[in-house]
Design a protein around this nucleic acid. Structure first.
Lengths: 225, 225
DNA sequence: CCACTCCTTCACCAATTTTTCACATTTCGG
DNA sequence: CCGAAATGTGAAAAATTGGTGAAGGAGTGG
């Protein structure tokens, strides 16, 4: 997370050097690629490239092609360099997830400013994640994944699962569960929990087995054993 | 949008009054803060502060601390007031994005001149651009484009969209949205958000689908899936 | 003062979730 | 192996929540 790796892709060596010099001063580690094929090659060989600057016009494989290839596997932030403002192929870029366009010629200062803004945006994700036994809970995105497949949960189910996963291996009485996942002043049937557990188990598929019943007591989330 | 809001932060009331009087004459709207905590408080409560004048030496929270906090969320231009030229902690300031230093004592005329120069510079700077899934937000021009077509948004709609796009993929509760897009002390119906979301979605056309509802929780801006 | 836009509130309806409930199934002590 | 107690389950009822159109009100500019 300290030094961000930036990949600059342009067929003009002069342009690459210009960008590289500026970014190096700013403390980035800069990698260069002279054409699209090389870019793709480097991108997947190197680990953890934090940002890609892509020229649109290049021999062999143009910027769009490179972007499309990268997007198959990565959501890395990408800045496209276009010859002119009018050349921005909006339709093209939109679907592919271009984060920024910069028109040539540009001042290096602007480039740096945009890069920093972009990286700031991309890194603000606090990344709170729960994970256990193939179940992932992305608390920021409010998304649950089980065995690599996204699971649609209602809010209560989501909160219940979160509570379970935050207390792995702990036996949780119905009363405790009610007090945490429901409001403290909730006064309803404790059997409601059972229904939610049922749904959770079924929605989680085989991973649902991790929610174990403790007879006469409550439930427990536990992986394995 | 014409009158720029300036926040002056200094523990000496005399100094604040001096600056305030001069800037008010010049047509700025001036807000005052007597210490760092108050400054941060005001900065995030008020909307669209155009420039901050920060004294370095203050009780509780010094100028650097305030600057660092503000920089977590904003690129607003900042002028630092230092007791002497030698005191300028350039390294400190460089990383944090100080735009100007002014040494005390200074003539109000100089201050005004620097402010105007700074605002001129900042307004011409090609600033931030948000883009995702075919929606572009030009924060400088205050212009939104969806699928290549310009979209006319009201101010609240614009701010809401900006907030969504700055937090792509993040589940945003209504409360969170209210606190960010509305003022912190806003106490109104949370359903107001729904109405704005409705309008946003309809104005964005097919791209409006990127604003997703998280049932029982809030909203999320997300491209794809 | 009027026309206009934007923000907010509200009421109604539809969609979705949460809860309840009756019945089936399982567990466990004896 | 039995029976009482506890849990699983499916479906229906009750409650929440969100979408939507309209209306009121504040603010703006002519």
């Amino acid at each position: 997370m300290d030094t961000v790796k930036v990949l600059i892709v342009d067929d003009e060596a002069r342009m690459r050097k210009l960008v590289k010099d500026f970014l190096t001063i700013k403390g980035y580690r800069v990698l260069e690629a002279g054409d699209g094929e090389q870019a793709v090659d480097i991108f997947f060989k190197e680990r953890e490239i934090g940002l890609v600057i892509l020229d649109v016009m290049m021999p062999k494989m143009d910027g769009w092609e490179v972007l499309r290839t990268i997007r198959l596997y990565s959501q890395v932030p990408v800045i496209m360099l276009t010859a002119r403002a009018e050349e921005r192929d909006e339709l093209h870029g939109f679907d592919l997830g271009v984060d920024e366009y910069i028109s040539k010629p540009f001042s290096p200062k602007i480039l740096v400013a945009r890069i920093e803004a972009l990286l700031r945006r991309h890194s603000t994700k606090t990344g709170e994640m729960l994970a256990a036994g193939g179940i992932q809970v992305d608390k920021d995105a409010h998304v649950v994944t089980a065995a690599g497949r996204e699971v649609e949960l209602s809010n209560k189910e989501y909160e219940l699962l979160t509570y379970f996963m935050e207390n792995q291996g702990m036996a949780l009485s119905r009363e405790k569960i009610l007090n945490h996942v429901w409001n403290y002043d909730y006064f309803g049937d404790a059997r409601t929990i059972d229904t939610h557990v049922k749904k959770l188990r079924s929605k989680l598929g085989e991973k649902g087995d991790y929610i174990k019943t403790i007879w006469g007591m409550g439930y427990k989330f536990e992986v394995n054993e």
